[in-house]
Amino acid sequence: MFLLEPLQYGFMQRSLLVAVIVGIICAVVGSYLMVRRMALLGDAISHSLLPGLAIAFILGVNIYVGAFVAGVLSAVLIGWIHTRSPIKEDAAMGIVFSAFFALGITLITIVQKTNKIDLNHFLFGNILGVTVSEVRDTAIIAAIVLLAVVLLYKELLFYCFDPMGSQATGLPVHWFNAGLMILVALTVVASMKAVGVILVLSLLITPASAAYLLVPRLHQVMLVGSGIGVFSSISGMYLSYYYNLPSGPAIVMVVSGIFFLALLFSPTCGLLTQFKQALKPDA
């Protein structure tokens, strides 16, 4: 009853759908970010969505499209600064994403004076407020992302594990890299409404990292990570409904809790598991 009661409301059904979708695609795409050690790029791209979102809103275009364009643009700009100047990649990320973020906040603040648009919903998410069209857009994005990952799984695995070796067999690694950036941008756009641009990094990295502590192969990391992501976003949504908590932070707190459990109790590399094994020979 406790679980089913809220589902009689249309808005809860919509949020549940978005929670499931976002939990899955964030974990899948986040697995790539984790193994390529590019977690912070996910953060940079998500912060950079804001100005595109605001400009699209002003122009009356679909804000998802505007946000996506800004996200891709930020990744291109980071790469451009990094390759054309002596500036290192992490510095380039910091410069670009803070600039985009500032511009976005400025634009949204100006816009929200006269319009019904709430900056906080983009910053921290508002999963209980998703509209039918937002559910549709999220589903379309998820279909594109998952199709790309399934169709190119073996190539992307080779590329992420050994970029040089895969390039030496003639695989178009520059396209793979660009493609992964696009997948990241699409995923953070789809997750914006659930957890907000500031906390989306958590849904990208944390389920994948928890799964990495539990299973040995990339596709298993993606599957277990998806399970963790879905469970977290649904429970966060319920917490948000029953206790009137902000949805994004509620989801993030659940997923972080699961990560710490995995860190402590993973059968292969958990901190407490190792501690127990260290005690065993003496016993």
Partner: peptide, 20 residues
């Protein structure tokens, strides 16, 4: 040059030779 903590098994790596 390889990240050996990558989540892959021996079998995954050998199959990479068949990707192309």
């Amino acid at each position: 040059h390889i990240d050996w903590s990558f989540p892959a098994t021996v079998w995954d790596v050998v199959l990479m030779g068949r990707v192309r």
